[in-house]
Design a binder for these strands. Structure first.
Lengths: 200, 200
DNA sequence: CGCTCGTTTGAGAGGACTCAAGGTAGGTGG
DNA sequence: CCACCTACCTTGAGTCCTCTCAAACGAGCG
């Protein structure tokens, strides 16, 4: 299996990238801090999310092996609008901003790749915005579930690999609301709940 | 005054770009349709927004002279997740996808410019996500207002150039809620309302 | 003046959230 | 093998607060 990498590992190292280990729960960056590095995941998972004082959070994305995150603030030299936290023990490559720009200049194909990644990320964010505008929880959940299988054309209902709490964090709802609405949707046969596992 | 252009007018024309007029209210593209063109504003304003069945809408952005919009779906060849509508009478340049890619290949500086634009757009979208997660209207409004003056460091309160309805559309609230909350904030001296005009 | 568009106010209802508590499953250790 | 712990799921009752609906006001304009 070929592992897709945002920027080739060897290039990152050659240009001064350094691997750093993060413990589970450790923050890679926090809201309002200034960016200094480009981050790319070698191992583990990183969650990027917004949070508010109520302890509620909104997950922007979960990034794994090969993916990079937090580039826009770095490029624009603006403070991070969100948090990045290690979901599991992680190994990340850290690379200084100047070196990143050197790579993008020396390797047009990397530049192009990042460009496409940005387009995809924007498309995903747009889908999320569409979720947020829905006033009814059920509509939010339907849109979220549908967005999960964007690439998958299958007749069968597939297991949704998230806990109720994670779904709540993706949709901006509360856990209890997610549970109650999913139960309703199950009765209407819009989803299946078998042994507490959710299928859509 | 130098007008900033995403891609130089002359290049667009040379590569087959065509100017097209849109009447006020006319749609440039609609949700779920497939993209065929790159659009750049020559004159007028275009609003990009999501909408739901309730007639509520969420404004993603308002684009004017020199700005382009709707690129991610075009690049990814995916259906538009939102609507683009002429707010005023407009003139736009339409350019086929292949020709856009030719330009980006032939003019690395245009490519780089679009790259930076993407970074900015993503940053703005991230700020919006942060707005959406706030459960209280007042927090949403504060974040929105703060985001308006991101570049402007001024002591004085500045006129907010949006109607209550537009603010509602940006924050996902209803007009009445916006009005009531702004009134509260005015009492708390967080904003000024002078002669119905809003200052922040 | 009469139209349109934006703003404002009030009353009422719905529904998601809050809070509290209990259930279930999987993993760990004695 | 059982007791315990932790994480996740579930349920119920009650409150709060935004939304809904309806109506009216003000400004600008032909």
């Amino acid at each position: 299996m070929v592992v897709w990498m945002q920027i080739d590992y060897n290039i990152l190292i050659a240009y001064g990238g350094i691997a750093k280990k993060f413990e589970k729960g450790e923050y890679v960056f926090v809201e309002d801090s200034m960016p200094h590095f480009y981050y790319q995941v070698i191992e583990g998972q990183v969650k990027v999310y917004y949070s508010n004082s109520d302890g509620r959070e909104l997950t922007q994305g979960i990034f794994s092996r090969g993916q990079s995150f937090g580039e826009p603030p770095l490029i624009l030299n603006k403070p991070y609008p969100n948090f990045a936290q290690a979901l599991t023990q992680c190994v990340l490559i850290k690379l200084g901003k100047d070196n990143l720009f050197k790579i993008l200049k020396d390797f047009p194909e990397m530049s192009h790749r990042l460009f496409l990644t940005f387009a995809e990320r924007m498309y995903d964010m747009a889908t999320f915005s569409a979720i947020m505008i829905k006033p009814r929880p059920q509509e939010k959940l339907e849109l979220f579930l549908r967005s999960l299988r964007k690439e998958i054309y299958s007749e069968k209902r597939l297991l949704v690999p998230f806990t109720r709490q994670q779904i709540a964090n993706f949709t901006g709802l509360r856990v209890e609301t997610v549970i109650r609405e999913l139960k309703k949707m199950s009765k209407e046969n819009k989803v299946s709940i078998i042994n507490k596992k959710l299928y859509y």
